[in-house]
Structures are given as structure tokens and as C-alpha cells.
Nucleic acid binder design. Structure first.
Lengths: 358, 358
DNA sequence: CTGAAAGCGCTTACAG
DNA sequence: CTGAAAGCGCTTACAG
């Protein structure tokens, strides 16, 4: 054919915009317009180009797009740890949301300590067009200042502080926790305990407050609502964190403190499933029956909560949808979007049901 | 200064090889040599270039490197699901191994069904220099054929089939399971049950066989070793999979079958922690005490195994190290490396200890 | 051991 | 609505 576009060892032998254009009788520039979905194209031209792309099995070279267009088509998950129960679901949600929008998900770990002390190293070579920042990193001021200074796009997930500072995605924890309070009341419980989450964490405040308010509205005597903190939780302020199995261990002393009260609670709500599972384990090791002697509920609807005996009552946030919104805010743009609080769902299982035998 | 390299809106205002070279008194080509660690550079030149890179806060533009060099500096994790307990640790290991070698980790989900039926869509736009393929994907022939056909580099993790087909990383499950068998024998158990893993899975074969062999060597009567399969496990052959909480649920019927035997086992080893946790939960819901009435052990050392009551005896594979080796085989090259079996560790906890009261 | 030239495959900034 | 030219920042393929 005497082609003046000899196929070198480039791009795995793939066609280029130039070659697609030649087949379609247009310039490479117009193929580029089609790739990027630019509107000003005659419908017939569009069809011809699409046909040519299909015929040549064309895939745009992402490195070239990245170089010329100064964007990477990568989105990056910035997280302090990979051990939380919800991590797998966060990654699953982000992976799918990215795939649906022709983006790739990159994972970057950043210890909370580093986010507080020396975040610059982390983003020396920013390799993403946008960042999804999980708690507690999304409440580390030095990291946020760095992101702002570098002009990087980011979305925070359930940030504790300064909700208007950046795009953010929330779940409506309050409604779920109030429903849980009501559920426990309806079962006949009258004395309640709460194991609070990491201090300074927005979700900690919301869940603790909602639980108390829900109980008070149901008619619980304020003297019968006890709150304790598990020792050594993640603390955004000083960069220390306790996670995974360490978190469950720390629930033991918290449960002990609640049981040591003069009028101990018969129902307990823990900030998250790890703490709840730890509380269940401690109760069982003390010879108590759950829920017969004490009911326990968590938050997150982690897989494992459904696996243990008794299965854990918990609250589910729609993480898949929330991650989809986070990605959409990064890819499509955030302008003018209101902050949305995704609805959560109470999952009643046998760690609270049926009502206690007393 | 009258620079002939005006700083346009490129690369976030970063310096280029050209500018670094000018400061160091060499060409951009030589800067490129430094970036890529090419050996043939005079030490003094090397020093000057490094100083210039530091002075200009130079970071190479990865998109340009990718375009010209025809590689992406991305590695990709190919996995059928993100819900296994060990997933978080796999990702953690890969993330760190990639960061240490200046690579980025991309996550790509591929349902087993798709790997068996239409893997081509998955890799239409290969965006990585190498792939880490987890079970059960690493035993899906159509996916492997596609990877081979496209000439893509990949490392399989504990593949079931054809261990020599590609670079692969293994753990020495056999040694761990034999140690477990011995541990149970030493506790005084004489009748044993095993809940097997997904059929066709290499790890299933190894763990089942090693458990039986270990018991026989200890002196157990073959008639007192029972093996059952949990229904509906992941099956590479037909693309169906059952994971996470579904896996734990399926352990219930398996335990029932073992307990229904004329001489039921007093100690059970399950293929993985999910199955073991499900078996513990079922035993407890039947009113049995673990380990008093029946001892249960798993495999994986998942976080959750340590959180439940009783804490789960299990076997830990060094996933972090294994992922490091996988990445190293992709980045540095695999030529001439022998297959290594990473040592595993028996973690004795209270789901088997102390010995049963009978 | 080092460099000048060319080009990877796109998109930008114009022009018509 | 479409195109010719230039160039993003590197590395390849030479040359010396």
C-alpha cells in the first residue's frame, strides 16, 4: 500500500489517531475530538470515525494523552491504613467507579503520622488528577494544606472538620443511629452504654450525640446512658492510630468499665464493628450471653459481623454509592453540587434480637 | 536571564531534563542516563547532575517516560474479588513494594466468570508493565492465554495448575498444616475433621493432603479423619465463587456433616479463616463450647480471627514478603530465579488451646 | 563517556 | 465544523 505511516514497534502495534483518521478520511485532530467527546462534529463524520476506530481496533495511547493533556487519568486513594473493615468495600467502590469513567485507581498509603509531620514527600510526584482522602487523613491539616497549595483536586470522605473546605461525601449516620436507639428501646432495654470512637473524629461526635439524643427522645433516664472511650484509638491530632485487631482488643476494657457501673447497661452501641466485636468477645469471655445478658450493636456492616455468633446488629452506609459520588465529583466536577448525606440502613441481627430474657 | 527554555504551563512548572542538564553543564540525554541509573557515567558528571536535580527540585515526567519508553511504570493487581480477608494485606504489601521500586499499584477487578469467558475486554487497554494475578484468577486458562498472547508480564500467586508456566510465588502451606496437625494431636485429640477449600484450587489440595499426612504420621487411625467440602465454594472451572460472609455461612452445613458422623471429630481444621469462623459460629449456636467440645483452626491469620471469642488458632503466610517478591520478579526480572516457598507460621490461640476437658 | 537529532501519539492553539 | 503545525518531556538510535 506504500503507507507513509510504517508500523514501528510502538504502542503494541496499535493504530494511531493519524491512521484512524486516514481510514475515515479526516485528520487526526478530528479523531481526537471523537475520543474526547467534543460536541462540534458532524454526525456523519462521527460515524465514519467510529467505524474506523472499530475497524482498526483503536485504543488511544494513554501516555500520550497524559503527556500532551497534562493529566494522568489516574485517581488516587489516600489512606492511612488498609486494615479497616470497610477498606475492601471502599476499594471495590472506587475501582468500579473509576472503571466506569475510564479512570484508573491508584492506592497510596500515608501513615497518619506522616500526614501530620511531613506530607510533602507523599506528593512530590503527584500522579493523579484527583485524590480521594479517607478519614482520618482527611482531617490532617498539614496534608490538606499541601493539597491546596499544590492545587490538587481532592474529595474528602466524612471529614471531621471544616466540611465546606473541599468537596466531601457524607453518610447520614445520625438517622441510622437514631433508628438503632429506637430499636434497642423497643426491645425493652432501659439502661444503655456507648463505646465512643476516635476523639476528634467527626463520625465519633455524630454517632455519640445521635445515640444519646435518640435515647432521650424515647424516654430514657439520662442517668442510664453511659459513655466510655476505648483507650488508644486513632487520634488525628497526634498521628497515633489503633486499628484492626488492636481496636477490638481495646474494646475489652471499655466493656469492663461499662459493666462496673452501679446500674450496668443491658444494651451497648459501639462506634464501629471492630469495637462491637471486641465487646462481644469480652462479654462472652466473662461468661455473659449476647444478647441474653447484654445486647451489642456496631456500625459499618462489615462482612465479619455477619459471620460471628451471634451475628452482629449494625448500620450499613452505602460505601459503593458514596465512592461513586466521590469519583464523579472529581471527574465531572464539583461546581454547585450540594453536600449530600447518603442514607444508611439498620441491619438487625441476633446480637440484639430477640429481647433480653430479663 | 534570557532563557531559551521559557517556563510554560507544563508539568506543574517543574524543571525538565533539558533545564537540569543546562544547570549541570550536560545534555538532557545525560540527565536521562542518571534518571535511569545507566552505568556509563563519569562520577563527577553524576554528582553534578544530581546536584542540579536537587537544586531544581526535579521530578521526571512519568507520562513522557511512559510515552517514549513504551512502559507505564504501573503494576496491576488482577483479582476476582476484593473481599477475602487477606486482600487488605495483599494490597498493603503490593503498595509498599511498588512504592519502594518507584512503581504505582493499580487495582483491577475481574470476575472469575469474565476471566473464563471473555477476558479480552479486560486487557483491551493494558495499562501496566506487569500483572500480579491472585487465585482463583491465576488458574483461569483463558485469562492466562490472553496474557501470554499479548506478551504481558505476570506473576501468579500460589497457582493451582502448571506451576512452571509463569513466574509464581508460593507459601509453604504444607509445613504449617503439618505443624497444626501435630499441635492438635499433642493436645490429645484423636478424631479429626477437615473442611476443604474450593475444588481445583492448588492450596486446597496441599492443605487437605498435608493435614491428613501429618495426622497419619502422628499415628491417627485413618478411619478417624473425616473430610467434607463446604457447598458452593469458588470454582475456577465454572466461574462461580462464594466469598466473604457467604463463605462463612457455607461452613455451617459442613460442620453439621462432620458432627453427624458416628464418631464425630473433636478437632477441626478449615481451609481458611472464613470457613473456620463459620464453623465456630455454628458450633456455638448448637450450644457447643469451643474448644471445650470441639477445637477449630483456620488458615490466613486474618485480623478478625484474633478478635472473636475464642480467638482463632490459624496459620500465617508472610503475604507482605510474598508480594514484595512478586513485584521484584516483575520489576527486576525473573530470569533464572528458582521457585521459593515462603515459610509460614502456626499461631496457636484459644480456639484450640487449652486441651479439651474430656 | 557524552551529545544532536528525531520522534513516541496525542492535544493545544491557532486558522479558516 | 475541520485541519496543518507545533510541541508536551522524555528516550531511542545513532554517532563520535
Amino acid at each position: 500500500m506504500g503507507s507513509d505511516f510504517p508500523t514501528k514497534a510502538r504502542h503494541g502495534g496499535k493504530a494511531t489517531v493519524h491512521e484512524v483518521g486516514r481510514l475515515a478520511g479526516v485528520s487526526g485532530r478530528t479523531v481526537s475530538r471523537v475520543i474526547n467527546g467534543e460536541p462540534s462534529i458532524r454526525p456523519e463524520t462521527l460515524e465514519r470515525v467510529k467505524a474506523a476506530m472499530a475497524a482498526l481496533d483503536f485504543e488511544p495511547n494513554m501516555a500520550a494523552r497524559a503527556l500532551r493533556g497534562a493529566r494522568s487519568f489516574n485517581l488516587c486513594l489516600l489512606t492511612a491504613h488498609l486494615s479497616h473493615f470497610y477498606f475492601a468495600e471502599v476499594v471495590r467502590g472506587l475501582t468500579r467507579a473509576c472503571a466506569a469513567r475510564d479512570r484508573r485507581l491508584i492506592i497510596q498509603e500515608c501513615p497518619l503520622r506522616q500526614a501530620m509531620l511531613a506530607p510533602a514527600d507523599l506528593l512530590r510526584r503527584p500522579n493523579a488528577d484527583g485524590y480521594v482522602v479517607l478519614p482520618p487523613l482527611c482531617d490532617a491539616p498539614p496534608l490538606l494544606e499541601l493539597l491546596d497549595r499544590l492545587g490538587l483536586d481532592y474529595v474528602r470522605i466524612a471529614p471531621a472538620t471544616d466540611p465546606g473546605r473541599s468537596p466531601a461525601v457524607f453518610s447520614d449516620d445520625e438517622a441510622g443511629v437514631r433508628a438503632l436507639a429506637r430499636h434497642l428501646w423497643d426491645l425493652g432495654h432501659r439502661r444503655f452504654g456507648h463505646i465512643a470512637g476516635p476523639p476528634g473524629h467527626h463520625a465519633t461526635l455524630v454517632r455519640s450525640r445521635s445515640f444519646t439524643e435518640g435515647l432521650l427522645e424515647a424516654g430514657v433516664d439520662p442517668a442510664d446512658i453511659a459513655q466510655v472511650e476505648a483507650p488508644g484509638l486513632a487520634n488525628p491530632a497526634d498521628g497515633r492510630a489503633r486499628l484492626g485487631r488492636g481496636l477490638a482488643e481495646t474494646a475489652g476494657p471499655a466493656l469492663d468499665a461499662l459493666l462496673a457501673r452501679p446500674r450496668p447497661p443491658t444494651a451497648i452501641f459501639a462506634f464501629c464493628d471492630e469495637l462491637a466485636i471486641g465487646a462481644v468477645a469480652r462479654a462472652q469471655s466473662l461468661g455473659l450471653s449476647v444478647p441474653g445478658d447484654i445486647a451489642v450493636a456496631g456500625f459499618d456492616d462489615s462482612d465479619i459481623g455477619a459471620m460471628i455468633h451471634p451475628a452482629l446488629t449494625t448500620i450499613r452506609a452505602p460505601l459503593i454509592e458514596m465512592m461513586d459520588e466521590a469519583v464523579d465529583r472529581l471527574v465531572v466536577g464539583d461546581a454547585g453540587r450540594p453536600i449530600a448525606h447518603h442514607p444508611v440502613e439498620l441491619r438487625i441481627r441476633s446480637s440484639t434480637n430477640p429481647r433480653p430474657s430479663r
